[in-house]
Design a protein around this nucleic acid. Structure first.
Length: 283
DNA sequence: AGCCAGGGCAGGT
DNA sequence: ACCTGCCATGGC
């Protein structure tokens, strides 16, 4: 067992997990158990610090996963100096949010599931998928044995039909899951290591079921393309209400933010998303 | 009960 | 390029 201890000044586990970038975690012993792929960790705020506990072998994985090499104090500082008053407010509120470095496949499939859906139900659908297909795993975390299911590899989903997803409650997203799994198994994500954000997004958009928003989220959360700015209903509200914007097309709203915030776009987007939802009683 | 949700597609202008 | 209706399901 390995324990990573880092400052909690710019790392709030609750805010990081609850801000809609990831869907596999639950409350546990005063902290959280979080999952990525077939791995699990426990994290908890302890005084001034955050404790991340995982197996010895996964230490580097979770150090990277929580983006612990990045200095978020500088990102928050840039948000405060951006000239947008709402962004300063949002960044100071959400300064403990970190952009997780999730697995690309898992992020892509998760955000296909997310479309026109609410966060509690997205969690349930993903849980259902994992328990139906994923390998059963056991971990010892915070002194207790935790059993869970890994997120399925695309290869494990290769033979699943549309009916399989329909029976899990995926609705019209069932067809999209089949399309995306087929594309991944056909090499969609092969050789993408050096692609820019726009090159990667272009490739993802070729798959039926992957539109602007899902591609942006996959690029940001699955491939850490921080010059991506996903626009959903919440960011559209931020744009109209707090930036007094007049654009109506979400693609153009996204382009507006990216041209303004460059490689800080993804971070600032999370601060704004967290801020806007918190005003509505969501967290 | 009815609106809403981290949307996308197809078909029409 | 922009507009509209439709798509399943269930949280609230």
């Amino acid at each position: 067992m390995k324990k990573i201890v880092v400052s909690g000044d710019f790392f709030n586990p609750a805010d990081t997990l609850n801000c809609g970038q990831v869907f596999r975690y639950f409350d546990f012993n005063g902290g959280y158990v979080a999952f990525s792929g077939d791995k699990a960790c426990f994290l908890k705020t302890e005084g001034e610090n955050v404790l991340v506990e995982c197996s010895e072998a996964d230490e580097k994985y979770f150090y990277n996963y929580f983006d612990l090499a990045e200095d978020y104090s500088e990102i928050v500082a840039r948000a405060c100096e951006s000239g947008a008053e709402v962004l300063k407010t949002a960044a100071l509120l959400g300064k403990g949010v970190r952009i997780l470095r999730q697995k690309g496949e898992e992020a892509l499939l998760s955000f296909v599931i997310s479309q026109n859906n609410n966060i509690p139900r997205i969690k349930k659908l993903i849980e259902g998928l994992c328990s139906a297909v994923g390998n059963k795993k056991t971990a010892v975390l915070a002194g207790e044995t935790v059993q869970y299911y890994a997120f399925p590899e695309a290869s494990e989903l290769a033979d699943k039909t549309e009916d399989f997803y329909l029976n899990l409650g995926f609705g019209y997203r069932a067809r999209y899951m089949c399309e995306v799994v087929r594309a991944i198994n056909g090499g969609l994500l092969c050789g993408i290591e050096n692609l820019s954000f726009s090159e990667l997004k272009k490739r993802l958009l070729e798959v039926k079921g992957v539109g602007e928003k899902v591609a942006d989220c996959a690029c940001l959360f699955g491939f850490h393309k921080t010059d991506s700015f996903p626009v959903d209903v919440w960011l559209e509200r931020v744009y109209k209400q707090d930036f007094n914007g007049s654009l109506t097309d979400r693609k153009k709203i996204s382009e507006y933010f990216v041209s303004r915030f460059k490689s800080d776009s993804g971070f600032f987007q999370q601060y704004l998303f967290y801020y806007k939802r918190s005003l509505s009683g969501n967290r």
